[in-house]
Amino acid sequence: MTEFPQGSGRREGRRSAVACALIGAAVMAAVDEIVFHQVLGWHHFYDRSTPAVGLLSDGLLHTAELLALVAGFFLYADLRRRRALSPGHAWAGFLLGVGGFQLFDGVVDHKLLRVHQVRYGVDLAPYDWAWNAFGAVVFLAGCGLAVRARRRTRRGGRV
Rank of each mutant, 00 (worst) to 15 (best):
T2M: 10
P5G: 12
P5H: 13
P5E: 14
Q6F: 11
Q6L: 10
G7M: 07
S8I: 03
S8Y: 11
A17P: 08
A25V: 00
V27I: 14
V27R: 05
A30N: 07
V31K: 00
V31I: 13
D32F: 04
E33R: 06
E33V: 00
H37Y: 02
H37W: 02
V39D: 04
V39C: 01
V39R: 11
V39H: 02
L40Y: 10
L40M: 14
G41K: 08
W42H: 11
H43S: 06
H43E: 05
H44N: 14
F45W: 13
Y46M: 10
D47R: 02
D47W: 00
D47E: 11
S49M: 09
T50H: 11
P51R: 10
P51F: 12
V53Q: 04
G54R: 05
S57M: 02
G59V: 03
L60G: 02
L60V: 15
L60W: 05
L61Y: 01
H62R: 05
H62E: 01
H62K: 02
A64N: 03
E65W: 07
L66P: 00
L66C: 12
L67Q: 11
L67E: 10
A68Q: 09
A68E: 03
L69Y: 13
V70H: 05
V70K: 05
A71Q: 11
G72R: 04
F73V: 12
Y76N: 12
A77V: 02
L79M: 07
R80A: 11
R80S: 04
R81Y: 05
R82M: 07
R82F: 02
A84Y: 06
S86Q: 14
P87C: 05
H89K: 03
H89T: 02
A90D: 02
L95G: 01
L95I: 04
L95R: 05
G97K: 03
G97S: 04
V98Q: 00
V98D: 01
G99F: 07
G99Y: 08
G100H: 07
Q102P: 01
L103Y: 01
L103N: 00
G106L: 08
V107T: 12
V107Y: 09
V107C: 05
D109W: 14
D109C: 12
H110N: 07
H110C: 08
K111F: 09
K111L: 15
L113C: 07
V115N: 04
R119W: 09
V122F: 06
A125P: 00
P126I: 09
P126W: 07
P126Y: 06
Y127H: 15
D128H: 12
W129Y: 13
A130L: 15
F134C: 05
V137N: 06
V137M: 11
L140G: 12
A141R: 08
C143L: 15
C143M: 15
R148Q: 15
R151F: 06
T153L: 14
T153D: 04
R154K: 15
V159H: 07
